[in-house]
């Protein structure tokens, strides 16, 4: 599993305060904590507290600050192509970048895929288009196909693409998680090499009481369906341990009595 740590986000108080005070310490600390927790990549999100016109600058600052403490990939998280570009430029080729994200409208796909191809970035494609969040497996697949086709059009290999079927809060639509699981299994068959499949896991438990429990149960179910990447909180130790255990049960890693430790030591 490829874990993208979600905690460098201006919505969290420590990062938000760091942004406001231009203090890199909380950013460094959160990057290091997430990597120690098992993150393979770090999501960088300026959040909504920052005024729109300043977001490009803040993204640049956050990326530069994070690059000071890691050479792991960074997921540049913003819907605006200009802000994403600013983030990629700030990484300056020092780390791999993942564009997070494009939606499935053709004009957006064309522009974002070109940016990915031009900058050697991977890209996350959401199952959202001009009609909003695709609610059925068929609709999600159709957007997925369009996303892969747009990637191939600019010469981007499908294994640089992460398809996100979109998980919605379980307390909003209880039928949605099952539809996501069906979609995950089918996404894998869209191309050879297969695209990666990612979810923004925490959204599933938004507003619910048992957040961690809901997240970890769904993560293991989705892994069994073929999920191979997730944006979540690597500081949630139980969540990470569940994920590591699922890797063993799915025969993706070899069991040993200290398999949890082995996973962490291998990072």
């Amino acid at each position: 599993m490829f874990v993208i740590g979600e905690r460098i986000n201006g919505m969290f108080k420590d990062i938000g305060d760091g942004i406001a005070a231009k203090d890199v310490k909380p950013v460094h600390a959160m990057a290091e904590k997430q990597l120690a927790g098992g993150a393979d990549a770090l999501d960088i999100n300026v959040g909504t507290r920052v005024p729109k016109e300043e977001r490009g600058e803040v993204m640049k600052w956050l990326v530069e600050a994070t690059c000071e403490v890691t050479d792991k990939p960074l997921s540049i998280d913003n819907p605006s192509i200009d802000i994403v570009r600013a983030g990629i430029e700030a990484a300056d080729g020092k780390v791999k970048t993942i564009i997070n994200s494009t939606t499935g409208q053709q004009d957006k796909l064309d522009a974002f895929m070109k940016l990915a191809a031009d900058t050697g970035s991977s890209i996350i494609g959401l199952a959202i288009d001009e009609n909003g969040v695709a609610s059925t497996a068929d609709a999600k697949l159709e957007i997925g196909m369009r996303t892969i086709a747009a990637a191939m059009e600019v010469g981007l290999s499908p294994d640089e693409v992460y398809l996100d079927p979109i998980v919605l809060p379980v307390n909003c639509d209880q039928a949605a998680p099952m539809i996501v699981l069906e979609t995950v299994a089918q996404f894998k068959m869209l191309s050879d090499p297969a695209p990666h499949i990612v979810v923004g896991l925490s959204n599933l438990s938004q507003g619910a009481l048992e957040r961690s429990l809901i997240n970890k149960i769904f993560l293991t179910m989705a892994m069994a369906a073929g999920l191979d990447a997730s944006i979540h909180d690597p500081l949630d130790e139980e969540l990470m341990n569940s994920m590591i255990t699922a890797e063993v049960l799915l025969n993706n890693t070899i069991y040993s009595n200290s398999y949890i430790q082995a996973y962490r030591q291998s990072k």
């Binding site: 070899i254 069991y255 040993s256 009595n257 200290s258 398999y259 430790q261 082995a262 030591q265």
Partner: peptide, 11 residues
């Protein structure tokens, strides 16, 4: 025993 092989390496 592959599981023990891995365990020895971890230890």
């Amino acid at each position: 025993d592959i599981n023990i092989a891995k365990q020895v390496n971890i230890l």
